[in-house]
Write a protein that binds this DNA or RNA. Sequence first.
DNA 1: TTGAAAGCGCTAACAA
DNA 2: TTGTTAGCGCTTTCAA
Lengths: 361, 361
Amino acid sequence: MARARISDVAAAAGVSVTTVSLVMNDVEARISDETRRRVREAAKAVGYAPSSVARGLRTRQTRTVGLISDQIATTPFAGRMLAGAQDAARENGHLVYLVDTGGDQAIEGEAIRALTAQQVDAMIYACMWHRVVDAPAGLPAQAVFLDCRPADGGYRSVVPDDRAGGAAAVRELIAAGHRRIAYIDTDDGPIASALRHQGYLEALGEAGITAGPALHVTGDTSAHGGRAAAELLLDLPEAERPTAVFCFNDRMAAGVYIAAHRRGLEIPRDLSVIGYDDQQLIAAEQDPPLTTVALPHYAMGRWAMEVALGVRAEGDEDATHLMECPVIRRDSVGPPPAQVAKPNRRRASHTERSPQAATDR
Amino acid sequence: MARARISDVAAAAGVSVTTVSLVMNDVEARISDETRRRVREAAKAVGYAPSSVARGLRTRQTRTVGLISDQIATTPFAGRMLAGAQDAARENGHLVYLVDTGGDQAIEGEAIRALTAQQVDAMIYACMWHRVVDAPAGLPAQAVFLDCRPADGGYRSVVPDDRAGGAAAVRELIAAGHRRIAYIDTDDGPIASALRHQGYLEALGEAGITAGPALHVTGDTSAHGGRAAAELLLDLPEAERPTAVFCFNDRMAAGVYIAAHRRGLEIPRDLSVIGYDDQQLIAAEQDPPLTTVALPHYAMGRWAMEVALGVRAEGDEDATHLMECPVIRRDSVGPPPAQVAKPNRRRASHTERSPQAATDR
DNA sequence: TTGAAAGCGCTAACAA
DNA sequence: TTGTTAGCGCTTTCAA
């Protein structure tokens, strides 16, 4: 039972292949309703499905797009990005090839060649975290970069607006009444680190706050690193100790929880904390649930696909689109603790419930 | 700068297209070394890359495979499975289409049609956790099921050997000296639940242990559910209380940690626990790190792809392959606590360090 | 050892 | 309103 071809349908319907082609492609013109109906019927009768391969050869449009990514396996974020890209592709009648290179340059080159040979209509080059990368050789100029930016420009790209996200996080803290706000940064130096720090300074500046350098501490991007950094902060003399801390990511924020709990401090009564990433398994599972800034992975995936497919006219050929990172409000931010007495009352807050801790649960 | 075609190469090398084709496809016969070299040079010179589309039309082999999955987005396991499938595909010169249906039947059908139209050489139908599913209509008979089994058979499939995995977990506990071993099961009723329970009973049976029904408790598949179930177990009179517990999954095992810690019990000194899934963010991050049984996602993904591509001759057309789930030894299993005195010493173990707790850290 | 030519299944220009 | 036909770029049979 070989596949039915267009000529089988034509024969069955008693028309020419042109007519069948026209009908199958929903071309408005010509073709009487009656013929149209007959063709449709014949197609169904013989079980006809057009060959995308033959069409692709003829039209040079394959309705496929290649998505090359460095790592799908290891990160919990990848899925949202792929889902966004997938959905946009499907809505536009495209199928997506996924190639996971594992960061291997050779595989990357091989993938670009294979995808080119398949005549994909578009290509997306994705990273699993916000980075600046060297554009791989052979990547077509119309490719779009997802969650990364090519070092030398020349391509359209979409990345999270980490600066604005950092500012939003800190504004959230300022709005709750905090003035001594620390930033627990990473020392691994990803681009997001510097951007979020910029946002932090920007928001403080707006509020006329100058942050002492003691409030900018670093650690590795893990709960352990966050905890160690938090210890430093909590060891500060009371008058300098932060009442709120903005963390580079949720894992580090989880470390802050641990450090705080070990000292009998309660969140948010004694210390407010806000994370970044909105990593479900971490942020939502904390006690109390962590307020954080979400990385807009789904939206970025969708944006990249829509731009790649040309359904979203994004004028500039060489522009980086910044995607907003929304604040996700949960329960780790509250007003700063009351300063009942100035000196030597470090233990006080553990036993006295501060009156305005209305958001406690 | 349109793409170079085979005829461009032929012209440049001063040979026929036949010759070029033969050379490009590394056909052994004919062609002198000299000609071969000239053709290769010409191809490089004009930047020739064969069109997979044209070749696909001619040979009816596209060197592509379709992977339909219910959910890539939400599960942390998906990645490993995709990675295994990807790697196998790449090694065999195939590209993979990924379609995430989100469990939507309409999208599923649409995907099967689109993939068929693209003339994929093979199809894989993947689920993100071990399930029995109805085979979707239109799925070609050669498709292989990954991490799921079609209800009515008729397809090749690969799933984790949850029964053997459960037995291995319990044997691990028995080998450490335990006799009173509980199973914290889920009440959500996935197929893995019953299989792991079978394995549990089987391993106990081998050792001549009969488990009282009080040692089989259930909860929902979360840390919370695991904790509640553990409370039940720890409330048992000492003579019946389990010294070790096998959990349906790592999240529930994390709940057991919490319940144990709240009572001042230390793991593994006072209670051994073993999980299932080897979910990185959970198992490896526990204190002490959780011994667990790994789900062989990468291996299953690879197996499915190799069978789909026909590079692994798996004789039976209608067979379910069971993939071994290896025990991952970390630090949550130790010998049972010493039974210093029979009755009424429930608090003893919290303060006295049992002498043989050699694996404590 | 090499080349000519048919044809994979479709679209689209052109003709009727 | 419909049909004829020339390719899209390749592989492969057959002939030289």
